[in-house]
């Protein structure tokens, strides 16, 4: 029956396709931003290696480092949430796949919130003196 329909007739009314490229665009956009950010992250890691607690805390409390660290974390988590989602959708189907996609999002959001809480308490001393 469908053989008698034109391709256009078959897809008509099935919804807009105008945002189909959205995920693709977000993957590329985040990848592009991450090029300089990850290079900065690797340089920072090398700078922090071998230093102790005081050096790391002093580094974190520099506004420049704080802003870039927040940016690198946010864009990394955004990028890896999309990347892992694609991997799950490629290999796991059905209910389990949907569940894993959900867990992936929760995990990335959880990491982001934990990192944000840690950065805030490290910089502004929230909870300092608790230990």
């Amino acid at each position: 029956m469908s053989g008698l329909q034109t391709p256009r007739k078959r897809v008509e009314g099935l919804g807009s396709a105008k945002h189909g490229a959205g995920l693709w665009r977000r993957e590329r956009f985040s990848a592009l931003i991450l090029i300089p950010l990850i290079l900065w992250g690797l340089c920072s890691a090398a700078h922090l290696a071998g230093g102790g607690y005081d050096a790391a805390l002093a580094w974190l409390q520099q506004p420049f480092n704080l802003v870039l660290l927040a940016a690198v974390l946010a864009v990394c988590l955004w990028h890896m949430e999309m990347g892992m989602r694609v991997i799950i959708e490629d290999y796991v189907h059905g209910t389990l796949g949907g569940l894993l996609v959900l867990l992936n999002s929760l995990f990335c959001w959880g990491l982001g919130l934990a990192a944000a809480a840690a950065v805030l308490s490290g910089v502004f001393g929230v909870g300092a003196g608790v230990h």
């Binding site: 790391a56 990394c76 990347g83 991997i87 990491l111």
Partner: peptide, 29 residues
């Protein structure tokens, strides 16, 4: 893909690093 998955775990390691830094010298050590 494999390196992406490894970096996924790496993000968790970095978050643990930040959490230990916030938790104080003993945890960081």
């Amino acid at each position: 893909r494999a390196s992406g998955v490894a970096l996924y775990a790496g993000a968790a390691v970095v978050t643990v690093w930040l959490t230990c830094l916030a938790a104080g010298p003993a945890c960081y050590a």
